[in-house]
Design a protein around this nucleic acid. Structure first.
Length: 868
RNA sequence: GCCCGCCUGGCGGAAUGGUAGACGCAGCGGACUUAAAAUCCGCAGCUGGCAACGGCGUGCCGGUUCGAGUCCGGCGGUGGGCACCA
């Protein structure tokens, strides 16, 4: 070592507790991360956005990961010469605030703003390169007044509808859930079993954009393929036919949607959803039918069915006529597997070519007639057993369709139906309109007044915002806005007579469907978006967040952006040009002998991997690694980690563990290892010799180190660029190892200069990940400069130093490695092959064989193909 | 049931079709220390061999190729999304 060793018992040399606040202050003082709404600096723009947090009160490791990833991108792009918009705010409406009000008597607003204050402090400790001047919370009237304006503009454009419809009622949250928000028959937030209930509510007409929302997925080439697939499946385009079946005994008819009109001749029944109007009609006079319908409703959507897999039906006794076969009629069943929300709420059953229909037919002994003959099958012997045939083939047993392939038969059937005026080809979508009415207090009021004379009347722009009243009580279930003694009583804006305010508030997904646009012009109080600013910054160049938002939030935001474009508030169609979905942060879980979950700090790990309870010494079961959750007590508080190791260590470990799109495991030893690294590179910086002029020539050690430095610059740049953040970290460890080697090498002229070069490169390369340490080291190297790393351009590798002095070529015989030879880079093939043949171990393998072929890949490999 | 992803040492993982296991974590051995901590040096896929050197090896089976973790086909496992979607 060229310097005295670290004295014993001395604390960490790099004092992050002093350094981190110091540099955070320096960045703030210089306004490093501020950008103008409409910049005039001529730099290319780059908008980095991480999904804004719900203010629960404390940040968790998922936030640390999310915001670290975003900060790496923001700082890197900034160094690359972009003007970077990197804002932060709060998704501040939502049920937890109301739950807190009900449980603890604290007002939702106070609870929310207190939480925001606490979380802002914690976030600021992370040292993120944010423009805090753009901060807002969606619960501020200054934000939601513009949202109300957007709603009114959408309404005027015909993008909002009020519909009477069956809704999912969450009895615990006392709120309506969109179908998309019901999971296994339970509310996605409350977990309560959902009941069906009919309500009148507001819908955004997202289905009007279904074709475009689907088609435009192809343009999102910087989105993960699987997210695009998930959205495509969710939108669910299908081609089929809508056709009318006439009832045999009356003039009425039933409309059916099918994707397989080619199998009409294989029909054996017609089935309708329990919510279908015809089912209600039958139930009116048939108590058994009524009982069956009631049973289906109380069973909820799917859970019981999933468990039993049983398809249940009730034969109404009604019969329908076949559109093609004169005189043929089929029974009409009410079936629990037919969805009212999809297609027309009625299907025709062709058991031979649909598995569900087949299961149903077998259960109730209905006919199974195959009408599609698989290629090569014999029409006389082909039969359907327990598996429906859904593959390609030729129509048979199908009258005029006989002999046609599936696609041709579909067209033939549709043409015939159209000719008879009984049906037509249609495109069907799985996507449904977005119901946004919520019967709760802590949300954005829907700016509508209900008048007995005029109906639903929009609140005039001049009266916005419709503010939430502050004096509300939570002493009974239901919506406090509805209970409020005066708030809802207003004069009709249209006729002036007494009328009532809409007491529903918006789904909080509305708040998060346009916040990214608002950030661009957060200080403009007059309008939702200032076009010059929004047109400059949008779309978001890199959006980063959890995969759990792959469908709803992203799809709603895509809809909102289109609706805002139609109403003149934005120029783009797509809000997010680039999307990155991060994995979860997991941790081991621990259980005591009594079966209770234990916090990580309550246990002590032993070298063999087992664990004991710290206080009692009792053995502890080390459970599986799973998502951090309060109930499992396997949470790690980022605040404590930052207090103990500093923000840079937390950021570094979270980047280093694994690729950012995968789930990671937070480990104590990994965090400690990251901390050691921060100390190590600081020590390498402290041990540097004094600055000197760049020498004309370097010795062997100096040349080796300089090559390592410039290779690292190239490799880390590529890794940051490609979201291979764990690889970037690995390359910096390699550089640190190279500096350590140089530190230990015999001194030679210029080596000190090379070491300083390496450490300066290290500081600047690691700055996106460890910005405080980077500043500290840079200041150590340039005490008088007064320059911040945050303001420096990105380092460039010298191309000449990326070329190795010699390369090691692997030599294979028949694809098996037999040795290697050291040759100059780009050496001529002849000389490389000659050297390879001469290598002793290779020569032995070649002895007595005939070389059939010599393969030479420059700078990489030689392979001999031999015979005999 | 449908759709998607993933599968590499004890662990996280690296690897434009070209020396599999970089880098880190954990581990082992050593140096320093009265001792510990910290730090530094070294070892480390499995297997045979004293060694030189060999055999096997990226979930399994096959294919393409001079050469496959990587490309293709099939199978298995695992994780996720959606789900009676007609």
């Amino acid at each position: 070592m060229s310097d005295t060793a670290t004295p014993a018992a001395e604390g960490p040399r790099y004092d992050f507790r002093a350094a981190e606040p110091k540099w955070q202050q320096a960045w703030a003082d210089r306004g490093c991360f501020h950008v103008d709404d409409v910049p005039t600096d001529g730099k290319p723009k780059y908008y980095v956005l991480e999904m804004f947090p719900y203010p629960s009160g404390k940040i968790h490791m998922g936030h640390v990961r999310n915001y670290t990833l975003g900060d790496v991108v923001a700082r890197y792009k900034r160094a690359r010469g972009h003007s970077v918009l990197h804002p932060m705010g709060w998704d501040a409406f939502g049920l937890p605030a109301e739950n807190a009000a009900r449980e603890r008597g604290v007002h939702p607003a106070k609870w929310t703003y207190d939480n925001i204050a606490a979380m802002r402090t914690e976030l600021k400790r992370m040292g993120l390169s944010l423009d805090w001047e753009r901060e807002f919370a969606t619960c501020q009237p200054e934000y939601y007044r513009h949202q109300q304006k957007l709603f009114l503009d959408f309404l005027a454009k015909g993008l909002v509808e009020r519909k009477e419809s069956w809704v999912n009622w969450d009895p615990v949250d006392g709120t309506v859930l969109a179908n998309e928000q019901v999971i296994d028959g339970r509310g996605w937030r409350s977990g309560a079993l959902v009941e069906k209930k009919q309500l009148s509510q507001w819908f955004f007409s997202i289905t009007k954009f279904a074709p475009d929302l689907l088609a435009a997925l192809d343009t999102l080439d910087r989105w993960p393929e699987r997210v695009r697939l998930m959205q495509a499946n969710w939108i669910g385009r299908s081609e089929g036919a809508r056709l009318r079946f006439d009832l045999a005994e009356s003039a009425e008819s039933v409309e059916v949607y099918t994707t397989r009109p080619d199998t009409l001749y294989g029909m054996s029944f017609l089935a309708i959803a329990p919510e279908h109007p015809l089912a209600a009609q039958v139930s009116a006079t048939d108590p058994k039918a009524a009982a069956f319908v009631a049973e289906c409703r109380s069973k909820g959507t799917s859970e019981a069915v999933i468990e039993t897999g049983e398809k249940l039906g009730y034969d109404t006794g009604l019969r329908v006529k076949h559109p093609f076969i004169e005189g043929a009629t089929y029974p009409v069943w009410i079936a629990n597997f037919v969805l009212m929300e999809y297609g027309t709420g009625a299907i025709f059953g062709c058991p031979a070519h649909d598995q569900r229909d087949l299961d149903f037919a077998r259960k109730y002994q209905l006919d199974v007639t195959p009408v599609v003959l698989p290629p090569g099958a014999d029409a006389k012997t082909f039969a359907v057993g327990k598996e429906a045939y859904t593959g390609p083939g030729t129509a048979y047993n199908s009258g005029f369709l006989d002999g046609l392939e599936v696609d041709a038969a579909k067209r033939g059937a549709i043409d015939a139906l159209a000719k008879q005026n009984q049906g037509e080809g249609v495109t069907n979508w799985r996507l449904r309109d977005w119901g946004v009415s919520r019967q709760r207090y802590w949300g954005c009021p829907i700016p509508i007044v209900h008048c007995d004379s005029c109906g639903a009347v929009p609140v005039p722009d001049s009266e916005l915002p419709v503010k939430l009243p502050e004096d509300v009580t939570f002493d009974r279930p239901g919506n406090p806005l509805d209970h409020h003694p005066t708030w809802k009583h207003v004069a009709c804006p249209s006729c002036g007579k007494p009328a009532r305010r809409e007491t529903d508030t918006f789904d909080t997904f509305v708040d998060s469907s346009w916040y990214f646009a608002r950030y661009c012009c957060a200080s403009d109080t007059t309008q939702p978006t200032a076009r010059a600013a929004v047109d400059h910054w949008m779309p978001v160049d890199q959006y980063i967040g959890g995969i759990e938002h792959a469908i709803l939030h992203l799809l709603y935001s895509r809809f909102f952006t289109r609706a805002m474009k139609e109403t003149g508030h934005i120029a783009v169609d797509e809000p997010f040009a680039g999307l990155f979905t991060q994995g979860m942060v997991n941790h081991e879980s621990y259980k005591s002998a009594e079966g209770t979950w234990l916090y990580p700090e309550e246990i002590e790990k032993r070298p063999d991997g087992t664990a004991i309870h710290k206080e009692t010494g009792a053995p502890v079961t080390v459970g599986r690694i799973e998502a951090m959750s309060k109930s499992k007590r396997n949470t790690i508080d980022p605040g404590e980690i930052i207090a103990r190791y500093g923000a840079d260590t937390a950021r570094w470990f979270i980047l280093s563990d694994n690729p950012p799109e995968r789930d990671m495991e937070w480990t104590e030893s990994g965090a400690a290892g990251a901390f050691r690294f921060t100390q190590r590179i600081f020590r390498l910086a402290e041990n540097l010799p004094a600055a000197s002029d760049k020498p004309a020539d370097f010795g062997a050690a100096g040349r080796t180190l300089r090559r390592a430095t410039h290779k690292a610059i190239a490799a880390v740049t590529e890794a940051w660029e490609g979201f291979a953040f764990n690889v970037a970290v690995a390359r910096m460890y390699e550089l640190a190892n190279a500096v350590t080697d140089a530190e230990r090498a015999a001194d030679e002229p210029g080596l000190g200069w090379a070491r300083r070069e390496a450490i300066e490169a290290m500081a600047r390369l690691c700055a996106p990940a460890m910005p405080h340490l980077a500043e500290e080291i840079y200041a150590l190297l340039h005490p008088a400069a007064g320059t911040l790393v945050a303001d420096l351009p990105w380092p460039e590798a010298e191309p000449a130093l990326l070329i190795a002095e010699s390369v090691k070529i692997a030599v294979q015989v028949m694809g098996k490695l037999r040795g290697s030879v050291e040759v100059p880079p780009n050496a001529p093939a002849d000389s490389v092959i000659a050297a390879a043949e001469a290598e002793p171990n290779v020569a032995r393998a070649l002895e007595g064989k005939r070389i059939v072929k010599r393969i030479h890949v420059p700078n990489r490999i030689v392979n001999f193909v031999i015979s005999g």
